[in-house]
């Protein structure tokens, strides 16, 4: 009977694991919905600020802000958005892989890199891997605010203004749908303005206090809003990935329990049969 009891113990332990993974799956599902809502809420700001910058590009073609100027690349910066917690499948690893491939393609051309990392998973990985981390922010929680990204963005933008780095990329996960998240690398600065053909007559804004300062503030906010969007989207990705990972873990636990249950039943039946045959044998001997 010892075998049967052991199996029963195992079943119980797998069941308690399954309870945990199922709870995590449910929590991730509800958090994902909230993260998605925040993702959509951040959209109007990014669109509006983008529109203003496009207007500016047309209204003010003679003055080129440094953030809008492309220059020769000797050093690149990355703002990498990762999660703070694990148990979310291959989300972070896929992102790191994409970032590393990109870094490698730059370093083949003799371009060095600098990193600003959000999220403790990325910080840990690149610290161990030997990336050059110049700024990091961890433990953002489920409700990050713009405040959290201001510091790191400033570090990168200052480095860009000083000329220490010539291009800054944002590396983060894109939320395609619940089942799939795509690592994505996009350029933050120099800002690539899209050429809108609609407004080609000349007009200009009135600036208060002056155009340079206004433009500075505006472009900085634009970059911040891009990074913020990356952070919020990454959280939605994290929750979606965790939900899927935990669902498959629960399913696996279920099939494991089924197998164990079968083994347990067999074992029990075998014991009963043995006992029966012993009784019958004993009775026949009398």
């Amino acid at each position: 009977m010892a075998g049967a009891r052991e199996i029963r113990g195992k079943i119980r332990s797998v069941q308690s694991t399954q309870k945990i993974t199922r709870a995590m799956q449910m929590v991730a599902a509800s958090k994902m919905r909230r993260a998605q809502a925040r993702m959509f809420a951040a959209r109007p700001y990014a669109e509006k600020i983008r529109a203003v910058i496009t207007h500016l590009g047309h209204a003010h073609p003679e003055y080129r802000h440094p953030y809008l100027q492309d220059r020769e690349v000797r050093r690149v910066g990355y703002v990498l958005v990762s999660t703070d917690r694990g148990l979310c499948g291959g989300l972070n690893i896929n992102l790191f892989k994409a970032a590393l491939t990109d870094m490698q393609s730059w370093s083949e051309r003799g371009v060095e890199h600098e990193l600003a990392v959000l999220g403790s998973k990325g910080a840990g990985f690149f610290a161990r891997f030997g990336g050059r981390i110049v700024a990091q922010t961890t433990h953002l929680g489920d409700r990050p605010s713009v405040q959290d990204v201001i510091g790191m963005v400033k570090v990168m933008l200052d480095a860009f203004t000083e000329g220490r780095i010539d291009r800054v990329f944002l590396v983060s996960n894109r939320f395609v749908n619940t089942m799939s998240q795509r690592p994505n690398i996009e350029q933050l600065v120099p800002i690539t303005a899209d050429d809108d053909e609609r407004l080609h007559h000349h007009w200009d804004y009135l600036y208060e206090p002056d155009s340079k300062e206004v433009l500075d503030a505006l472009l900085m906010r634009y970059v911040e809003s891009l990074v913020y969007r990356g952070v919020v989207e990454n959280i939605a990705c994290e929750q979606a990935a965790r939900m899927v990972a935990m669902k498959s873990a629960s399913d696996n636990a279920g099939s494991l329990i089924e197998e164990l249950q079968l083994a347990y039943n067999k074992e029990r039946q075998a014991t009963i049969t043995q006992e029966l045959s012993e009784i019958v044998g004993g009775a026949a001997a009398v």
């Binding site: 910080a123 570090v155 505006l218």
Partner: peptide, 27 residues
């Protein structure tokens, strides 16, 4: 385009320094 956070040059500076410090600490 409303700011969510209170902004001032030296406040931003402090945030930037904080982010840098964390990276160095980690190192």
């Amino acid at each position: 385009l409303a700011d969510v956070a209170l902004r001032a040059r030296d406040l931003d500076e402090a945030q930037a320094l904080e982010a840098k410090r964390r990276a160095e600490e980690e190192l």
